[in-house]
Design a protein around this nucleic acid. Structure first.
Lengths: 202, 202
DNA sequence: ACCTGAACACCGTTCAAGT
DNA sequence: ACCTGAACACCGTTCAAGT
């Protein structure tokens, strides 16, 4: 489907510039970075940014779509080589590390997966964002569903948890690591294993 | 210790007005509410707000100090009536519900307990806030330490987790509930029990 | 059809002037 | 000693004017 109407050459060029600029600025200043900054770095009027990406969420979505798809694709690769329970653990670990290290990815998936708490405050354009910009969330949710269901059927995960619960808890674990200042993979993997094995009884 | 120098009458009155106004505004608009709003509602100049509470964190701390102390005090009450493992679970549940329902409390404890991720963005006055405004964090951390240690000695909780880990994970669980739009106690208790019992094996 | 950038409304923070 | 509020720097968002 991609593009129903081909874009005008300058529009297409501006979109590209905006994506490149946004990737850089998000990487430097996080998902809450100034949109003005992005437009300036892209050498584009602020109005142009809003024309292409009506919400911050839409911009995040476009910037990180490929990364998210890659993570989702990993789910199947991992599942093919491991028993269901182990596959889930490994994939969740990769997902969590990604959210922790790629600035903006956590904010994007926080909204996309759970449906709230975008970046900072405003719920202005949230209505519009809700509809179209779900591609990333669908992607991750789909992968999580396949892995969790398989693990449940294999008896490796209890049956009364939904895949969305697991994603939310992983999001929470990543939040915990972030606030601990631990952005390397070791801390998040440790918290994840606590989540999986459980606090009670070693 | 309270007040080394007694405040001037008008200063004391303004402080009181600010606290009352802040409690109302935080309850209505969350911990990220406009400080201008608070000063306006208190019928006080904005500069006065900054004189009394140099950072948002300091204001949150002052507003919620009593609530936090009450929660911490509950820890001992609960511990006196229950075996260590159960006491920890019950107290964490109360803590989580408090963070979920009292707007601002989660933001306050997020910073106080973990040392990061204040409310939204700016790390401006964070340096100053780090030092003095730790009362709430100390309070909660102290209570958590007593309960976790006791539970560990009783063999109810594995020995390789630190109390701070538990607090961070609870913070994460509350975040998960928030983003799920579940603000009543049931969801958070369910996630908490998942955390405690573990995902693997029913 | 798309772009531009000034204009608007809002925010946090500081500070000279007042009592 | 404390308070006030204007001033400053910043931000997101919109929109009339341009091509």
């Amino acid at each position: 489907m991609a593009q129903v109407k081909p874009m005008r050459a300058d529009a297409r060029r501006n979109r590209e510039r905006l994506l490149r600029a946004a990737a850089g600025v998000f990487a430097e200043h996080g998902a809450g970075a100034s949109l003005d900054d992005i437009a300036r770095r892209a050498e584009v009027g602020t109005g142009t940014l809003y024309r292409h990406f009506p919400t911050r969420q839409a911009l995040l979505e476009a910037v990180y779509l490929e990364s998210v798809e890659a993570i989702a694709a990993r789910a199947d690769t991992i599942a093919a080589a491991r028993p269901p329970g182990a596959a889930l653990v490994v994939w969740l670990g990769e997902l969590a590390v990604g959210m922790l290290q790629v600035r903006g990815l956590k904010a994007l998936l926080g909204t996309a997966v759970t449906g709230a708490e975008a970046v900072a405050g405003r719920a202005d354009g949230a209505d519009r964002a809700d509809r179209a910009d779900r591609a990333c969330g669908d992607c991750v949710r789909g992968a999580a569903e396949r892995l969790v269901r398989a693990a449940q059927e294999a008896g490796a995960v209890r049956g009364d948890v939904a895949p969305i619960d697991v994603l939310r808890l992983v999001h929470g674990v990543v939040t915990a690591c972030e606030s601990a200042g631990e952005t390397d993979g070791t801390a998040v993997r440790r918290y994840l294993s606590l989540l999986m094995e459980g606090l009670t009884r070693a």
